[in-house]
Simulated assay, not measured.
Amino acid sequence: MDITEVKISPISGDEKLKAFATVTFDDCFLVRDLKIINGKKGFFVAMPSRKMKDGTFKDIAHPLNNAMRQQLEAKVLEEYNKSIEEPKS
């Protein structure tokens, strides 16, 4: 499965949440609302989730193995870094 597009929507004014990402796979499947978060050990990507009745959160969509998680996180963070480096017009 290839990541064919990543769109970044930066968030301003939040110390931890830096942006939302939308990822397209194989030009035919889209996942919205991945979160780019600045954590204690640096930036990471959180999967879209839903709050459950007991107050916990459960991922709606997520990679099934570590290799795919690493590939997804690397691509999303690469696009995020490009988006914050672009000069503002």
Rank of each mutant, 00 (worst) to 15 (best):
D14N: 12
P63R: 04
I36D: 09
E15N: 07
L64V: 11
P87C: 01
K40C: 03
K16F: 13
E5A: 13
L64D: 11
K35I: 06
L77C: 05
I84E: 02
P10R: 04
A74T: 12
P48M: 07
A61T: 13
D27C: 01
R50P: 02
L72F: 02
T56F: 02
F29I: 09
Q70G: 09
I37S: 05
M52Y: 06
F43G: 06
A67P: 00
K7G: 01
T4C: 12
K58D: 14
S12V: 11
H62R: 12
I37L: 12
I8G: 06
F29G: 03
E5Q: 12
P10C: 04
K53T: 15
R32N: 14
A61N: 10
I8E: 04
K88E: 15
M47K: 05
M47N: 12
G13R: 00
F57P: 06
F20P: 02
E85T: 12
L17N: 11
N66W: 03
I3K: 03
N38L: 15
T4D: 13
C28T: 14
F57W: 07
S89A: 11
K53N: 11
E79W: 01
L72P: 04
V45M: 01
K58Q: 15
K41W: 11
V76S: 05
D33C: 00
L34A: 02
M68E: 08
T24I: 08
F20S: 07
T4P: 07
Q71L: 15
M68Q: 00
N66R: 09
E78S: 13
F29C: 08
P48L: 10
I8H: 00
E79A: 11
K16V: 15
E5K: 11
E78D: 15
T24H: 03
D54C: 07
K88D: 13
K40E: 04
A61D: 13
N81H: 06
K40H: 08
I36W: 03
F25W: 12
I11S: 05
D33S: 01
A74M: 10
I84C: 00
S9Q: 10
G39S: 05
G42C: 09
L34E: 03
E86F: 02
V23S: 02
D2K: 11
K40G: 04
N38V: 07
I37T: 13
N81M: 10
K16Y: 12
K88H: 08
V76Q: 03
V76R: 04
M68T: 05
A19H: 03
L77N: 05
F57C: 08
P63F: 03
P87T: 04
L17T: 12
T56Q: 03
K35V: 08
H62F: 14
Q71K: 14
A21M: 14
K16H: 11
F25E: 12
S83W: 00
M47F: 13
Q71V: 15
E78H: 11
S12D: 12
V23C: 02
V23G: 01
E78R: 08
S83T: 01
L17G: 09
I37A: 06
A19L: 01
F25T: 08
D27Q: 07
K7P: 06
E5C: 05
